[in-house]
Amino acid sequence: MSRIAKRFEALRAGNRAALVSFIMAGDPDRAACQAVLNGLPAAGADVIELGMPFTDPMADGPAIQLAAGRALAAGGSLKQTLEMVAEFRKADRDTPIILMGYYNPIYAWGPEKFAGDAALAGVDGLIIVDLPPEEAGELVPFLRSAAIDFIVLTTPTSDDARLPVVLANASGFVYYVSIAGVTGTGSATSAAIEAAVTRIRRHTALPVCVGFGIRTPEQAAEVARAAEGAVVGSAIVQALADQGPAAALALVETLAAGVRAARK
C-alpha cells in the first residue's frame, strides 16, 4: 500500500481529516526551506505538498508567484527539489509528499526519467496544474510504472459530464479547487464546498481534499468536516515570507489543531 493510501486509511480510522500543507521548494533558500519541510510533520501536517518552482506560474496568485521567484533566485531547480525530498526521507518514511507545479520542467527533464528519479527520491504523488486529462497520457503511464500517484484537480467548472474524464487518471486522492481562480485569493462558502464534495463522491471512492482560499484554523475545520483533507498553501507561504520559519510552522500547528478538532 502506498504512503498516501496508508495515511488516509489511518486518518479514516481516527475519524479525522488531513491537513495538507504546501510550501515552495527552495523558498526562501534551500537550507531554510529544508528546515521548514523537515518540521512540517511535527507541526501537524499529515500530507505535504512541495511546490516545484517555475518562472511562469499561471494558476497562482501573488504569494506563490513570489515564492517561486525567491526560490529560483536562490538557485532552486527541479533537481534541488528532488534532493530536498530525499533529505526529508532520511528522517521521515511515513508522511506523503506530493510535488505540485507546472509541466515544462518535467518535460525538460524527460517524463519517463523524471518518474523514476522522483520515486527514488521518495515522492508519492504529482499534481501538474497545466496537464489536463487531454494531455496527461504523455506522463501518467510513467508515473504508474514508478508507483507515483497522479493527483487530479477538479474545479467548480468540472460538471458531471467532465468529472469522469478528469477522474479517469486519478489515484491517491482528488484535489478539489474550491474556487474558479488563482491560489491565495477568494474563498468558497462551506455550503458550496459540501455540495461539490458530495458531487465528486458520486464519481470516485478516492479521498477528496479541498484547497484554494483556506487561510484560518476555522476555515480548515469547516473543510475538514466535509472532506478528507484541507489544503493550505498561500497562507503558510505568506507567513514564511513575512515572519520566517518559526511563524510558518506555528501557523501549521494552529491549522492542524483546527483540523483535528473539527469532527469532535
Partner: peptide
C-alpha cells in the same frame, strides 16, 4: 482533432479552463 501539429500545440491549461 486534439489540436496537435506533429508534437506541437495541444491544450496545456488548468482544469478550470478546460471546459471553457
Amino acid at each position: 482533432e486534439r489540436g496537435h501539429f506533429g508534437i506541437f500545440g495541444g491544450r496545456y491549461v488548468a482544469e478550470t479552463l478546460m471546459p471553457l
